[in-house]
Design a protein around this nucleic acid. Structure first.
Lengths: 253, 253
DNA sequence: CCGATTCATCTGATATCACAGTTTCATATA
DNA sequence: TATATGAAACTGTGATATCAGATGAATCGG
């Protein structure tokens, strides 16, 4: 009971009832990480997760082992499970990878996307804008994720999309935390920064790969400032990070 | 006993004795996949792997679950474990990703590599050439892997290197199989194709990122023909694959 | 001789138990 | 009051038992 209150509504029975428990546990934990239900550095245990998910520890261990191999969780032997913290340095490294992978995926999507897929993406973006205007950060972030991955899936490159998903999994907890912090401090998190979504949609409609690529890379810069503001609060190496970030902006994509 | 003969020397006690059994099992299985100890499509079971590794099924399940999440293995529920087969289409998709990731890693390495690292890479390449001249395919492949990852590690981007490792894990079994096939058929697998290693070393010494990038991408073309020859043998979609491969070559990196 | 059926065997999936470090906190000591 | 101590509770780790579904070979019926 106390555990169920720690991780509200983590129960697994909401998922599609067919798959094996360890798969459902994995999916549910991924979802929780992306939704900000866990914060970076938070300590977890197998037993409490098992209870919250409504299963025994065995399927939880398989799910957690996998997430640990991906870097989303860290298992401290005989101690506890930790939601991986993201250093500012690691975030800059991942931004570099995001430019590469998501830029490529967007460009490929522009070559291969169908009209009906463009339509769906426009609809997702419309919903996103509504939540943004309404100031609903959580739902806006969820729709933003849907928007991006609807584009990436149009690249017809399943393994590329999987790689991007894994990247987002590492950024998810910190992104949720720091965007919520900035939002709570009254920063303009939702008021602007969606121009690149329009540019991206235009590029997809025009089937223009390089325009799609630059729109996606432009979009990354938006959340970047909020993230670094939060990440650098705990970091003493801010100078070297900012230097590296500047050199990254000058590097041709 | 019969099992130990099926997977010779898979026993885990050779690994560094500190880590947990599921980590060692994972490392050992990765090694086996990269060394060609398993072939694509081969069927495995948890119990036989556990016996061969000298542990119980529990740590094996965690290792296999992780490898399944990465795509290296496929778990057929209530049936068996399968070493993932690589279709020609999937291989082309991965080549695209390899160009992106490994090209970027090589370019970054050229910016950040130290003189002593260049030295080490030259030494690895010398050893590789000896095995190539001696016709030792297995050891040449092992040293080729060492060569590539010594370069990538010089990029100082740990997560990028991990991503590349995961890519190689998916290609490993098929690469071992088809290169060995071609070699057995008397094809020139080891006689040529190492010019790009020299070009890469030169580029690293000159600290020339774009030269390093094109050397790495050139090197990928070498094994590519042997791989496609093997992969297309079982595939009926060869025409579309070759078309896609051609369009890939024309795409600017 | 061939196809359907049955039953023993095998497989992955899950839960549970036992164990050895780790943490925590109340107690004892100075 | 501050520090040391030790036992109890907790944690990840690994092995095992059990179960339902899949497999395969022997059996049966044609």
């Amino acid at each position: 009971m106390a555990v169920a209150r720690l991780y509200p509504d983590l129960d697994i029975d909401a998922s599609p009832g067919e798959a094996q428990l360890h798969k459902r546990a994995y999916d549910r934990l991924c979802e929780a990480l992306m939704r900000g239900e866990f914060s970076p550095g938070q300590k977890l245990t197998f037993r409490s997760l098992a209870e919250a998910l409504g299963v025994s520890v065995t399927p939880v261990r398989e799910a957690v082992s996998t997430l640990a191999a991906l870097g989303a969780l860290r298992v401290h032997p005989k101690r506890h499970i930790e939601v991986s913290k993201l250093s500012a340095e690691a975030y800059v490294e991942m931004l570099e990878l995001r430019r590469l992978l998501e830029g490529h995926a967007a460009a490929r999507a522009a070559e291969r996307i169908t009209d009906s897929e463009v339509e769906q993406i426009v609809e997702i973006n419309d919903g996103l804008m509504q939540y943004a205007l309404a100031g609903n950060l959580r739902k806006a972030m969820r729709d933003n994720q849907r928007f991006h991955f609807a584009v990436y899936r149009a690249s017809r490159s399943a393994y590329l999309v999987e790689n991007i998903e894994r990247l987002w999994l590492l950024i998810g907890p910190s992104l949720n935390l720091h965007l919520a912090e900035e939002y709570a401090q009254g920063k303009e998190v939702l008021q602007s920064g969606f121009e690149n979504h329009i540019k991206l949609i235009d590029a997809l409609q025009e089937r223009d790969p390089s325009a799609a690529l630059s729109a996606i890379i432009g979009d990354m810069g938006v959340s970047c400032s909020h993230m670094l503001a939060g990440l650098l609060r705990d970091s003493s190496l801010s100078v070297s990070v900012l230097k590296e970030l500047n050199s990254l902006s000058e590097t041709p994509a």
